[in-house]
Design a protein around this nucleic acid. Structure first.
Lengths: 107, 107
DNA sequence: CCATTTACTTCATCTGTCGTAGTAATTATA
DNA sequence: TATAATTACTACGACAGATGAAGTAAATGG
């Protein structure tokens, strides 16, 4: 299991990646993270929803509703152009970070 | 430059790595991080010293003084057995973290 | 002799994570 | 048919780690 302090800088990036695949909503995204990480990272609900708010405020995602006939109303999110740029920047940063941290890791 | 949120989970690990090389003190460690990272990561003084206190409290490092004839008194640190174990654990975790985050990074 | 570098320390603030708890609807199970 | 579990959130408060600002103190460089 991965500790949250480690992944802290990448929660937003992870969410943006999944929204790049397709527009989605909280519960689905949390399932997808669990699935894609082989259960090695399970994001906390509160962490996820506070990330959504942060990303909304920064204009990296947009929220909307779909007409549903049943079930509790979902808030859907999609990535914006600015969000895509931010995601790409984070990807480059990640390559650099890997390289740098590797220098302080033994075998 | 690497943002601090990304490296947050690895400051302690980086410090332990350098103390594994040899016992050292704050200023020297900060220079070494800058050097080893090719200036791509420069740790803030306050971050460094608060990390020392955290590591001391956890018993991962020990502090001591050397007799000096001049200069401001330095506080030296060395890694403990528990610190070494923690370091090794963090190295394993890092491999896992890399693998997982990579799944959310494009190209 | 004054600036810079070395080598810290204290304090207050901010951000992101997380625990707890609550709401509300649907679906599974006994 | 009652209730437990699952889906899908929201609100709130606490906490840890990073950081900015400022201060202290000694040695060294120009």
């Amino acid at each position: 299991m991965i500790s949250s302090d480690v992944i802290r800088g990448y929660n937003d990036t992870i969410i943006l990646y999944l929204l790049l695949e397709k527009e989605s909503y909280g519960y689905e995204i949390s399932k997808r993270i669990k699935e894609l990480s082989d259960e090695k990272y399970i994001i906390k609900e509160t962490t996820l929803y506070s990330a959504f708010n942060r990303l909304l405020k920064k204009g990296f995602i947009q929220s909307f509703h779909k007409e549903q006939t049943f079930g509790k109303k979902r808030t859907y999110y999609k990535i914006t152009e600015a969000g895509l740029l931010y995601y790409k920047e984070k990807c480059r940063e990640w390559e650099l970070t890997k390289e740098v941290i590797n220098r302080f890791i033994k075998e």
